[in-house]
Design a protein around this nucleic acid. Structure first.
Lengths: 208, 208, 208, 208
DNA sequence: AATGAATGAGACTTCATTCAT
DNA sequence: CATGAATGAAGTCTCATTCAT
C-alpha cells in the first residue's frame, strides 16, 4: 500500500513538474514557439515522457491553463472569504490579483498571452474558457457590493471589466519590463480612482 | 506619366493588400501559427510575392504593427484635436478607441495578441514598441486634463492604464465573442464609473 | 542596311556581355549557386532579358563553356602554328595554357569547376565535352612530337594527362589563392621535370 | 554493458552511413544540387534524421570532407611507412592514390569537385582546406627523395603538383567515363615518364 | 526588344509524435 | 514507466522562368 501511495505521489509530482515547466516555457516563448522538448528539459524528463501524462501539446496547454486559473482562483476565494465587508472584498481582490500573479511572473504572461489564443483554438474548444470563470467571480463580488449597498447601482460586469482588464494590463506592462512600475502602488492608485472617480473631490466629500 | 502613376499605385496597392491580409491572418491565427501562404492567399497573390515587398515574416509583422498603430493613432489625434475641453478629449478618446478598432475587428486582436509577444521577439527588437506610443498619447491627455483642473490630481499613467487596459480587454472579449456585449455601451458605462467612482452618489450630487 | 548591321552588332554585343558576365558569376559562385539575376546585373540588363538570348540557365552554361574553350583553343592553335619544332610546340603549349587562362582568372575557375559537372549533366548531354577537344589537341601535339622523334615512344594520351592535369591543378591552386605561387615559374619547372625526369642527371647527359 | 556497446555502435554506424551516402550523393550531383533528402534516402533514413547527426547541410559537407581525406591519408601513410627506399615510397604513393580512391569511385569526384568550391565557401571557412594536408604529405615525400639523393634537386612542391594534379585528373576522367582508361596502367606510364623524362633514352641508359 | 513583377515548385530545416528498447 | 532516436509533415524562403506592359 505504501508503495502504491509512493507511486501515486511520484506520478502526481511528475505531472505537476511538467505543468509548472509548461507554464514557464509557454509564457516565455508563446505556445506555438515553445517546444515540447523545452518543457521536458525544464521538467528534467525526456521528451517522450510528456506524452505519458498528456495527450498532446494542446492538451498540455489546456490542462496547464485550467490548473493555473483554478488554483489561483481557489486561493483567492479562500482568502477573500475572511473579509466581511463586501467593498473590502472587492478591494482585497485587486490586491490579491497582483499579489498572487506577481509572485510567479510567468503565470501572468502565460495567462494574458495564451488565454486569448487563436480563433481556431476557441472554435474547436468552445467549452474552454478558464478566464471566464475568473471574470465571473469578480463580477459576483461586484454584484454583492451593489446588493449590499456598498457601491452604487452600476453594471457589475462593466466594473469587473475595469478591474480585471486594468490589472491584467498593468501586470503585463510590469512583466514585459516595458516600463518600470510597482504593481502594488498602481493597484492602490487604481483603487483610489475607482472609489472616487476622476472628478475633483469636493472638500466636504471623502469619509473613508 | 500616367503609366508611372499607375505602376506606383499598383505597387502601393499590393503592399497595402498584403499588410491588410497580414493583420487579419496574424490576428486570426496568431503570428507563429499564421503562414505566409495564408497571408498570400488572403491577398490574392502567390506565396513568393510577399517576399518582393517584405524581407521576411518578421519584417511583415513589424511593418504591419507600425502601420496599424500609427495610422489609428494619427486618426484619433486628428479628431481629438477638434475637442476643446480637455475632459471631453479624454472621454472622446475612449469612444474613438472603440469606434476605430471595432470597425476593423481583427486589428484589435492583432494588436493585443501580438503586442505582447514572446520575450524572444522583444529582446531582439527592444526599440520596437508601437503600443507604448499609444499609451503615451493617452497619458498626455490625462496629464492635460489634470493640468487644466478638469480632473483631480492623480497619476496620469495609472489613469491611462485603466482606460487602455479596460477598453483593450472589453474589445477582446467582444471580438472573441466570449460574451455578447455592446462595446459602445460598455465604453459609456466605463466613462460613468470613472467620472464618479463606485461610491454611492450622495443625494445632492449631479444627476448625469 | 546600316541599321541592320547596327542591330546585328547590338544583339551580338549583348549576347557577349551576358556570356562574359556568366563566366565570371558562374566561376565566382559555382553554377548552381549563381543566379540568373546575378548574371543579368553584372551584364547591366534585366533578368528577363537573358531569356531572349538563351533558352535557360543550362543553355547559358553550355554556350559559355563552348565559347570559352573554343576561343582559347583557337588562339592557342594559331600561335602554336608558328612554332616549327614539334617539341617547342609542346613546351609552348604549356606556357600558353598558363598565359591565356591566367589573363582572365575567372575563366580558369569556371572551367575547372564546371567542366566536371554532375553526372546528371553529362548523362543528359553526352555529346557535350568541350574539355575533350582541348585534351585531344594536346594529345595530337604529343603524338606529333613522338612521330617526329622529338620525344621517346610513350603514350601520347598519358603525356597529355600530365600536362593538362598538372597545369589545371596549378592554376586552380593559384586562383583559389590556397598558396602563393607563380604559375609561369611552376610551368617552367614542370617543363624541366618532364624533359629530364626526376632521376639525377648524368654529368654527360644534357644537350638542350 | 552490451546494450551500451550496441547503442554506441548503432549511433556510430548511422553517422557513418550518412557520411558515406553524403560523399556519394555530393559527388554525383555536386554539393548545391544534392539534396538532404537524396542523402537520407541513400542512407535509408528519414530526411529529418540527418539533422540529429549534423548541424546542417554545410556541416555535413565539411565533416564528410575531413573524414574522407584524413582516413585515406592515414591509410596511405601507414602503408607507405613500410617502404624503405624514398623513391619507392614516392612511386608507391601514386599507386596507392589510384588504388584507394578507385576503390570508392565517388570519393574522387567528391574530392575534386567540392574541394575547389565557390569563393563564398572558402572565404567563410578559410581554415578549412583538407586537400592541403594531402598535398603537403606528397610534398614531404618528394623532399625526402631529394634529400636522400634518390632524385635530382628539383622543387618538391612542383613535383607534388604534377603527381597529385595528374592523378586527380586521370581519376576524374576515369570516373566520369569521359574516356575508357585503366588508371593503374596510366599510373605506371606516368611513373615511367617522371622517371626518365620525355627525352629519347640514350641506347646506353638503364633498361627498366 | 526589353523589362521586372509575379509565380510556384522545391530546398532546407524544425518539431510534435511514436515506438522499440 | 521512462527514454530518446527516428519520423515525416509542414513552414519559410529562394529563384528559374514567364508574360503583360
Amino acid at each position: 500500500m505504501k508503495r502504491h501511495v509512493k507511486r501515486q505521489t511520484d506520478k502526481t509530482d511528475k505531472r505537476r513538474a511538467i505543468l509548472d515547466a509548461a507554464v514557464e516555457v509557454f509564457a516565455r516563448h508563446g505556445f506555438s514557439d515553445a517546444t515540447i522538448n523545452d518543457v521536458a528539459e525544464k521538467a528534467n524528463i525526456a521528451g517522450g515522457t510528456v506524452y505519458l501524462y498528456f495527450k498532446n501539446k494542446e492538451d498540455l496547454l489546456i490542462q496547464a491553463m485550467n490548473e493555473i486559473i483554478s488554483s489561483r482562483l481557489a486561493e483567492i476565494k479562500k482568502i477573500i472569504s475572511h473579509e466581511i465587508n463586501s467593498l473590502d472584498r472587492l478591494y482585497k481582490m485587486i490586491l490579491l490579483h497582483v499579489e498572487l500573479f506577481s509572485r510567479n511572473p510567468y503565470v501572468v504572461k502565460f495567462m494574458v498571452s495564451e488565454w486569448r489564443q487563436s480563433d481556431d483554438f476557441y472554435q474547436l474548444n468552445p467549452e474552454f474558457n478558464p478566464f471566464r470563470e475568473y471574470l465571473d467571480y469578480v463580477t459576483s463580488l461586484c454584484q454583492e457590493a451593489i446588493d449590499t449597498g456598498s457601491i452604487g447601482k452600476l453594471n457589475p460586469r462593466t466594473l469587473a471589466y475595469i478591474i480585471v482588464g486594468t490589472m491584467d494590463f498593468v501586470l503585463t506592462q510590469w512583466i514585459t519590463k516595458c516600463e518600470p512600475l510597482d504593481p502594488y502602488l498602481v493597484a492602490d492608485e487604481v483603487r483610489q480612482i475607482l472609489r472616487h472617480g476622476v472628478h475633483i473631490p469636493k472638500p466636504e466629500a471623502d469619509g473613508s
